[in-house]
Amino acid sequence: MVTILSYSERADLQLELASLANELISKLGGGVSVSALIGYNVKGNADMLSKYFDRVFIIDSENLKLFDLSNYVSALMEVVNKVKPDIILVSGNRRGGAVASALSAVLDVGCVTEVVKVEVINNDVITYRSAYGGLGQARTRVLTTPKIIAVKPGAYQRSTVTKNGTVEELKVDLKKSEIELVDMKPKEAGVKLNEADIVVVAGRGVKKREDLQMLDELAKILGGVLGCSRPLSADLGWFPNWVGMSGVTIKPRLYIGIGVSGQIQHVAGIRDSKIIVAINIDPNAPIFEYVDYGIVGDLYKVVPKLIDELKKIRQR
């Protein structure tokens, strides 16, 4: 009987962890799935989570309003001490990855982050993660109990297996954080790149912001969405997020990179796409090593033609 504890500050990511927790429980010979619901004014999510986990523990405190890592770890420790998990799953978004790491230091156990797949072989839990900056893959293993596994958002589908879990609230004494929030600028939500079937990605080969319209039109004709490589978001601010290892990992049916050179940090985030297409003026661009189909040419000439031809097909 294993106990698997799942934590993410986001309820939607908790449901991805629920899938993996159920899978591990069945492969490890049965057990219970536990969800830690931690934050401020988060009780509203408990009923929803209890439909996907066997047990839900709530820790709701004003001192969790601000993301102070040591307070989040203290809260999570309370649940860990209560249920004594064998495996702790954390969704590895930016906050989650830090929570997993810090918890591993405090519990003095091992932790693996950036995990895209978990396998059970002879009762051993094997984790797959990227290696060497996204270039390769590594098979890894946490050697302690509990094991902390931080899973990349989007690596698992949200659970659809419904349960009738219990809900319990725990009280923890948390100190007031030494950190103070003085300003917060929300980001526009942007399109959900990792949920789209077809993703057109604009790279630095796109010269002006206005030119994105053309790429957006292409994406729309194909029924897809438009994303970008890191420089267009991080340096130029044209998009709220980007595709790649340090951005969003995607696995659409069709990826089309336009004016994207194909540096490994970008490729790391598209590698599992079904079909990869690139349009690039440079025949030696690294992206061509990773494509199913490529066009060597000027995007400013190729994309308009592509749009025209696709329109003709749609009209027929």
Partner: peptide
């Protein structure tokens, strides 16, 4: 103490078709 180990690391095989069309002249 040992907390974690890498069993192996490798370049994964993702077979791609690598079909390139030349549009370098109009």
């Amino acid at each position: 103490k040992k907390y974690f180990e890498v069993l192996d690391s490798y370049m994964p095989e993702t077979p791609r078709k690598h079909v390139i069309f030349d549009a370098s002249s109009d």
